[in-house]
């Protein structure tokens, strides 16, 4: 079936399977920053913004994106570069598989929460798992990013 969406600010017209998830449709159309990590909406690596709201794209039916705006890290290059620099400066980035999903979630958080403290950050990002680091350096990097963004 055919769907029309706005992908990272540009109109897109895609042929999708009625039973496929947005994640699969994105990857099939070359949006490869969105990673498949768990298939059960548990890990956060496939996070995208749907009309500005962070969702696990593995659990959103692709046809539901019809008429809506989808944002991935490809559409957030400046935010990615700035957060990436903070992560790198803190030595918090490891394998990077979870990083694009994390960037999307952090951007959503920075738009939604005014001055999140550490507990609020940890709570908001609880759905973004990382298996390489112990979250400590990552949280430090995110706080630095939020400070710099202000």
């Amino acid at each position: 079936m055919n769907i029309s969406l706005e992908l990272n600010g540009r109109p897109a017209n895609w042929d999708v399977e009625p039973g496929e998830a947005l994640l699969e449709a994105l990857r099939r159309h070359g949006v490869l920053s969105v990673k498949r990590g768990c298939d059960t909406a548990s890990c956060g690596t496939c996070t995208v913004l749907l009309d500005g709201v962070p969702v696990p794209s593995c659990a959103v039916p692709a046809p539901r994106a019809d008429g809506r705006a989808v944002t991935t890290v490809e559409g957030l290059p400046d935010e990615a570069a700035r957060l990436g620099a903070c992560l790198a400066a803190e030595g918090a980035d490891q394998c990077g598989f979870c990083a694009p999903g994390l960037v999307v979630a952090v951007v959503a958080m920075s738009r939604e929460l005014e001055h999140p403290d550490e507990a609020a950050i940890n709570h908001y990002l609880a759905g973004n798992l990382c298996r390489c680091g112990g979250y400590v350096s990552q949280t430090r990097a995110i706080r630095r990013y939020l400070q710099e963004a202000r």
């Binding site: 909406a41 969702v55 709570h123 609880a126 759905g127």
Partner: peptide, 12 residues
Amino acid sequence: VENIVGVQVRNI
């Protein structure tokens, strides 16, 4: 519901 998985999941 506030601790269920993460914000992304609670959004859907």
